[in-house]
């Protein structure tokens, strides 16, 4: 049982004010404890740096929290660890890109993603930014996904959105495998 627990992937989320050295220090501690890293996504959001990372082999969630305590304090990080059924080698290549931009306002993501979900889109990767200026912000969102009901359904859903002030572009994606 202990062995099984050791082999489960934990998902770590760490967030703190962005500065150099966060990744190096977090991964140094995990490596020293014998941990293995899986897939990870890390980026700057606002002025914060956010880490989402698969980790295993360093014990229970409590053990990992204990290991990272000194780094957490030094870098003022918020740390969360979950035991999951995550697994590697489950990658899905996206077959559609949805690009949205317009003057920023509340509700863009909710409206667009509701229509996309209704049309069968499984979101695989979503990135959004607020550009422009503080007085005239613009919202830009790029979604890569899997159109489980086909691209036509996605295009119809977007056409039916009825939000003229938003620009929404659908680009089919195909993957060269050779």
């Amino acid at each position: 049982m202990e062995q099984v627990m050791q082999n489960k992937w934990l998902i770590l989320t760490l967030v703190g004010e962005d500065r150099p050295g966060i990744v190096a220090n977090v991964t140094r501690v995990l490596f020293a404890a014998g941990a293995q890293l899986g897939e990870a996504s890390m980026m700057r959001l606002g002025n914060q740096f956010a880490i989402m990372m698969m980790v295993r082999g360093a014990g229970s969630p409590e053990d990992v929290i204990g290991l990272l305590e000194s780094v957490r304090v030094e870098f003022h990080l918020k740390l969360h660890v979950d035991e999951t059924d995550a697994a590697l080698h489950q990658v899905i290549a996206p077959d559609v890109l949805v690009t949205v931009h317009g003057a920023d306002r509340a509700g863009i993501v909710a409206e667009v993603t509701a229509a996309l979900a209704e049309a069968g889109l499984n979101i695989l990767d979503l990135r959004s930014d607020v550009g422009g200026t503080a007085t005239a912000p613009i919202y830009i969102m790029q979604i890569e996904g899997e159109a489980s009901q086909g691209i036509d359904a996605i295009e119809q859903a977007v056409a039916g959105l009825g939000v003229q002030e938003l620009s929404v572009r659908i680009t089919p994606l195909d993957t060269v495998r050779g």
Binding site: A93, P94, L173, D174, T175, V176, R177, G178
Partner: peptide
């Protein structure tokens, strides 16, 4: 153009 690729 940017496109997605994989490989056997």
């Amino acid at each position: 153009a940017v496109g997605r690729e994989g490989c056997l």
